[in-house]
Simulated scan of single mutants.
Amino acid sequence: MELKGNGALITGGGSGLGAATARHFAEMGARVAVLDLDQEAAQRVAGEIGGIAVGVDVSDAAAVETAIAEAEAALGQAPRVAVNCAGIGLAARIVGRDGTPSFDLFERTLRINLFGSYYVMTHAARRMMTLEPDAGGERGVIINTASIAWQDGQLGQSAYAASKGAIASMSLPAAREFARAGIRVVAIAPGLFNTPMMEGLPEEVSAKIAADVPFPPRLGAPEEYALMASQIVANRYLNGTTLRLDGAVRLPPK
């Protein structure tokens, strides 16, 4: 599918991987809707790229439906591409050292990472189904963000790994369901990327983390995630799978 001239919505588009994707898609000629819980951040990115900004809490199904309808109205067309980058990466043991369970963190992580992606995928797909297919029979592309923690989850990442593993597992059944409508579903599983979460770490800690990446021996750049997203959109035969983007790193137990 071509990005040029088509509508694209990106959650978590106010920073990190989402912001890089919004900028890259705009450079490729897409009409971009930047969705983020932080509406000021969304407006800042949208202002840079000539896009539109919509504030939304992706963990709220009704709010997601409203936000996507607002984005569609502002873009003047239903989005043909949806990229889910909104998420959190909180860490906690299942049972803390003091014996306290982490139920609240588990529920919050799944509501934002997993339920949020599911809500956006659902409402985006509903709108894509109303579009005329392109010359290749395609109506849309949905890209969800998993993580290498899906397979390499570290100590304290049970909630995060569960949420990202579920996102990876959704790719195939969702792609099979939407195949008749000409909608593809692919997940990207990023490794260690230079996002706001990483930027908050001390320099020596970041350097040690980056040194564990075989090649290239550095943190991933958000622009590399954005490039992968655009390549998924362009390659019609990519469907129903999860792609690791990680410089060949494998996470240790802790």
Rank of each mutant, 00 (worst) to 15 (best):
P214Q: 00
L219Q: 01
V213D: 05
P216D: 14
I209E: 13
S230H: 14
P216T: 06
P214A: 01
K208V: 09
M228C: 15
S230Q: 15
I209S: 05
A210Y: 05
I232Q: 04
M228L: 15
A221L: 07
M228W: 13
R218C: 12
P202E: 03
V233Y: 09
L201E: 08
D212V: 00
P217D: 10
P216I: 03
Y225F: 15
V233F: 09
P217S: 15
A207T: 09
E223H: 00
S230T: 15
D212W: 04
A207C: 07
S230W: 13
Q231H: 04
L227R: 09
E224L: 04
A221I: 00
M197P: 06
P222V: 13
A221K: 11
G200N: 05
E223D: 07
E223T: 01
G200I: 03
F215N: 05
A229G: 01
L227K: 10
E224F: 05
V205P: 07
A207Q: 11
E199W: 04
G220Q: 08
I209Y: 14
I232C: 04
V205R: 15
A211R: 12
G220K: 11
G200R: 10
K208D: 13
M228V: 13
D212T: 08
V213I: 07
E199Y: 10
A221V: 01
P202A: 02
E199G: 11
E203Y: 11
V233Q: 09
P217K: 15
Q231R: 05
S230L: 14
S206P: 00
A211S: 15
G220V: 06
E223M: 02
A207E: 14
R218T: 02
A221S: 02
P222Q: 13
E199I: 02
E204N: 14
E203A: 13
R218P: 03
F215Q: 07
G200P: 00
F215W: 10
M228P: 10
Q231W: 03
P216C: 10
R218N: 07
I232E: 08
L227T: 04
V233K: 04
P217C: 14
D212L: 09
A207H: 11
P222E: 14
I209V: 10
P214N: 01
L219F: 06
A207L: 07
S206C: 04
A210F: 07
E224N: 02
F215Y: 10
F215L: 08
E204F: 07
K208Q: 14
L219Y: 06
V205N: 13
V213S: 08
A226P: 11
D212A: 12
Q231L: 08
V233H: 07
M228Y: 13
P214D: 01
L227E: 12
